[in-house]
Design a protein around this nucleic acid. Sequence first.
DNA 1: TTTACAAATCGTAATCATTACGGTATTATA
DNA 2: TATAATACCGTAATGATTACGATTTGTAAA
Lengths: 137, 137
Amino acid sequence: MNMNEAIDLLKNKGYKTTGKRKDILTFFEQADGYRTAKDLIQHLESTYEGISFDTVYRNLHLYNELGILETTELNGEKHFRMKCTHHHHHHFICKDCGKTKEIDVCPMEEVTKRLANYDIEGHKFEIYGVCPACQTV
Amino acid sequence: MNMNEAIDLLKNKGYKTTGKRKDILTFFEQADGYRTAKDLIQHLESTYEGISFDTVYRNLHLYNELGILETTELNGEKHFRMKCTHHHHHHFICKDCGKTKEIDVCPMEEVTKRLANYDIEGHKFEIYGVCPACQTV
DNA sequence: TTTACAAATCGTAATCATTACGGTATTATA
DNA sequence: TATAATACCGTAATGATTACGATTTGTAAA
């Protein structure tokens, strides 16, 4: 998902494309990794002083519902990033900068075989650590 | 990890084995799956009316540090279960009853190869859904 | 078995992320 | 440009978790 696809999606669904909505998309497009609501608020404050929590969280939820953003929970805080739409994969997540690296390994085919009578609704596979750019040594 | 191992560990480390601590262990031993702090408080209330949040959370953290419990974050709430100490594996987690099923599949060997310059500190692989016992059909 | 003291607990307040809401402003489009 | 639906603001409420001074309790030495 990118900026233009997201804006088209908003328009097609009848949502208004406000300046704040565009700026939120730009923020995540440039982030290239996971960011929190707090990160976003801090970023938006420079342009929109006193922006409301309501606006931020409402739009994060909207984008999540529309499949513009994907989310994960780390350290008791929700993190968001632009949704990867091209093919199924997982992520290494850098705990310092939040940037992600695609991992094209998924063991679900094998796992599904072993859970014959289970109703599988989803799965999560994430690798945590420090990316090369953030290593101080 | 089981009740007796946990109590021995507490004693060896110089922690006191109070009635509440034992009851918390019993609760998780019988749970056979993930439970929240709220679940635990509700259970303890029947024996210890007005038990303090401090007591509950302090002991959950202690048990987590000592490797008696393991934890995961679901729906914005921390969930705890007795730690599996025998060998490395992952879990299917039933969203209705919290019970888990061991999954002896872990793709980390392959993943490690693909993250040569990355400092890997941990990973999470969980499968979510409904277990056979909770399926209403 | 008392005593002494560190550890554990209580009762409650504070914190942090998130959600909710009534009133106002803005956007899309007719 | 008028209109109505949508978005936003300012702020209060919620829910999980953390924190803290005062009090109680286990443990082990005397």
